[in-house]
Amino acid sequence: MNDLHLTLQAQFPDDVLEVHNHFGDETAVVRREKIQEIAAWIKKNELFDLNVLIDLTAVDGSELKWKPRFEVVYHFYSVRKNHRLRLKVRADEKDSVPTLTGLWPIANWFEREVWDMFGIRFEGHPDLRRILLYPEFTGHPLRKDYPVNKRHPLIGPKN
């Protein structure tokens, strides 16, 4: 156990809001405005060396009465050090999260997917449009208030 989350908290005491390592997954919740800075730091830092953005997704907490509503979840991995870290930022529907496209090119598609599925905006994203669904689709299906079988067919019968 490297306790990366604790080290990160010591480094950014004001910006890390919460840490835990449930089930051994080291996790830090950071301030939304600082995600770019912290991600750049953990990518460069010798001890962290988290050079791969493995995954980027979001969770809609509206059924759990989360405030703010969404959590954007980042999973990082270090190929050289062989350890992982999960970062999370919290955002509301109106908020936009700073993009990580400048640091990892793959963030481009991951963020487009989160926009498509949850409707979370990413500030500074070069090309934020739908990726899995089509432009005619209205709504963001992975939001908890989206009914599972509400369809927007392009051709054929309407529902």
């Binding site: 669904l133 299906p141 989206y146 009914p147 599972v148 079988n149 509400k150 369809r151 927007h152 067919p153 051709i155 054929g156 019968p157």
Partner: peptide
């Protein structure tokens, strides 16, 4: 796949 993304049988088309 009875959900928002899938056509419910191609005989609708």
């Amino acid at each position: 796949y009875d959900n928002y993304a899938t056509v419910q049988g191609i005989d609708t088309l």
